[in-house]
């Protein structure tokens, strides 16, 4: 009984600490925005370095969706709607969610490990002793970069999945769906609200993953075990948070 009680209080304490940490990050954002070079470095590290995995995954997800969608639609003689099918599923759901899951695995874990190791090797203490606030110098730029990079990655994922190498390649080039129908149906059925909501979701997921990653890294025990635990829990907690947030956001966006 005492065990489960202390687990709950530990969790609540962790949540409280994470919230205060988020407040201090938000407080440091204006200062970080004044350092565009630092931001660019971090956008490169979390964004550009995640491109390959996003591009490849997007293509495969789009190809699979086209195969599965075609099989169902062709029975109803609605194979021309394949474009809408792929586009709606990708833009509304799979784009932001799968990108965020990949982002957590690729960039989130790297962030947590980097910050955890900086802590374990006294780099963060060293900065503090040089009168440099590590939240301003290290944490805030990484957080902003995550929030900024996620929507871009998600859009690239969607572009790959719907067009270029994904759904279009399979649906039009392989299965013979009419090229004009593929695009025009997307054009008429996909509204800008869908894209707005998709970008909103991505930004929220980006913020959640970055917050969890920098929190886990910054509060990791300064040992190799602590860093490995921080990396693991970043991926686990982020994945759960993404799926739960996706449900909440979708419920709000659902008309």
């Amino acid at each position: 009984m005492k065990g489960s009680f202390s687990i709950i209080t530990d969790m609540l304490q962790g949540l409280g600490r994470a919230q205060f940490f988020l407040l201090s990050i938000i407080g440091a954002i204006p200062a970080a925005l004044l350092r565009p070079r630092l931001l660019a470095q971090q956008v490169y590290a979390v964004g550009v370095m995640s491109l390959i995995i996003i591009v490849i995954s997007g293509s495969f997800v789009g190809m699979v969706l086209a195969l599965q969608g075609y099989r169902t639609l062709v029975d109803f003689g609605a194979a021309e709607s394949l474009g809408v099918f792929v586009a709606v599923v990708i833009v509304r759901e799979l784009g932001p969610v799968v990108t965020a899951l990949l982002f957590a695995g690729r960039a989130g874990s790297a962030l947590a490990a980097e910050i955890g190791l900086m802590k374990a090797t006294d780099q963060l203490s060293g900065m503090e002793m040089m009168a440099v606030d590590p939240v301003k110098r290290v944490i805030a730029p990484r957080f902003i970069a995550g929030v900024f990079a996620m929507p871009l990655l998600s859009m690239i994922f969607a572009m790959m999945a719907i067009g270029i190498a994904g759904g279009h390649a399979i649906g039009v080039n392989l299965l013979g769906v009419d090229d004009g129908a593929y695009w025009s149906q997307i054009h008429s059925s996909l509204h800008w609200e869908d894209i707005r909501d998709s970008l909103t979701k991505s930004a929220v997921f980006g913020a959640a993953v970055s917050w969890i990653a920098v929190y886990q890294g910054y509060h990791a025990a300064p040992t190799s075990e602590g860093v490995s635990r921080a990396t693991t829990s970043t991926v686990v907690v982020s994945s759960l948070a993404i799926l739960a947030l996706d449900f909440i956001l979708t419920a709000f966006m659902f008309h």
Partner: peptide, 17 residues
Amino acid sequence: DLRKRMGMLFQNGALLT
């Protein structure tokens, strides 16, 4: 401001890697 007047050398150097 006080810390700017103190330098500290950590055991392993604590260099930014």
